[in-house]
């Protein structure tokens, strides 16, 4: 396959940056998207150019590091996958492919296609946990009976890998899907109840401070999310927050 890549290049956080074209040849349909970029980078290095910086780690869809906005969609045209799981067979010979970083005020660009997602970490630090004593006498998890449906629902929410595709694909750069997944995975379980009210209020407060936009319920996040996190989580968070606002 022969492709024309248009990639966002930006030397550093304060550089203005621009889209740069890179023609590339001999791309196999079985390659992953990131392998294709590795090949491009090899060629750039051989020429003495600066390789394109992009985030990645596990390359198997579980770490949430890879984060490319490909041809106008977060993680590219396929559904339920991360960028590292995207195959080149999804493209055709001669295609032009736009590759951009996540765009949001709360996710500033570090270099090229890498963005700083530590805003998510700060939201997590505000309440995305349960406070348990782990000093060697941890209780067996199965000692607390939990209905299977709740456990499944909590698990589904917990599959969020914090990649930020929800923010990237939202017209409003809203982080609601991510935050609601993190609120839900604990709100659905007995262990999460003790801190439930503080959790939702504190996490939402930090979400707002970080400069994410407001949710318009467009549903773009749910479509582009590699883990197919459901909008129901956002409704659950809206309920939890309403309750917490009245009570506390």
């Amino acid at each position: 396959m022969k492709l024309n890549l248009k990639i966002w290049r930006q030397k550093g956080p304060n550089d203005k940056g621009s889209m740069v074209s890179y023609p590339i040849e001999n791309i196999d349909g079985d390659m992953s998207f990131l392998e294709m970029l590795d090949i491009l980078n090899d060629q750039l290095v051989e020429k003495g150019d600066d390789p394109v910086a992009f985030d990645h780690d596990c390359r198997e869809g579980i770490c949430g590091m890879c984060s490319l906005y490909i041809n106008g969609e977060a993680h590219g045209p396929d559904r339920g996958i991360t960028t590292c799981q995207l195959h080149m067979r999804k493209f055709n010979d001669g295609d032009t492919i736009y590759i951009e970083p996540w765009r949001a005020k709360a996710f500033p660009v570090i270099k090229d296609l890498m963005v700083d997602r530590s805003a998510f970490d700060r939201i997590m630090a505000a309440g995305g946990f349960v406070s348990v004593n782990t000093s060697g006498n941890t209780q067996d998890a199965n000692a607390i009976p939990i209905p299977k449906d709740d456990a499944d629902e909590a698990f589904n929410a917990a599959t969020c890998i914090g990649c930020g595709a929800c923010v990237a694909s939202c017209v409003n750069s809203s982080a609601m899907l991510f935050v609601s997944a993190k609120v839900s995975q604990l709100a659905l379980l007995p262990q999460g109840q003790i801190e439930a009210m503080d959790r939702v209020k504190n996490m939402v407060a930090v979400m707002d401070e970080e400069g994410f936009g407001n949710c318009s319920n467009t549903g773009a996040c749910e479509v582009e999310c590699p883990k197919e996190i459901s909008l129901e989580n956002i409704a659950r968070m809206n309920r939890e927050f309403l309750k917490a606002s009245f009570v506390k």
Partner: peptide, 20 residues
């Protein structure tokens, strides 16, 4: 607020793929 949350726009978007 929502406009402010994305100061740099995408060069290419396909919003019709994921929302109305």
């Amino acid at each position: 607020q929502n406009r402010k949350a994305r100061p740099v726009k995408y060069a290419h978007t396909r919003p019709q793929e994921n929302s109305s």
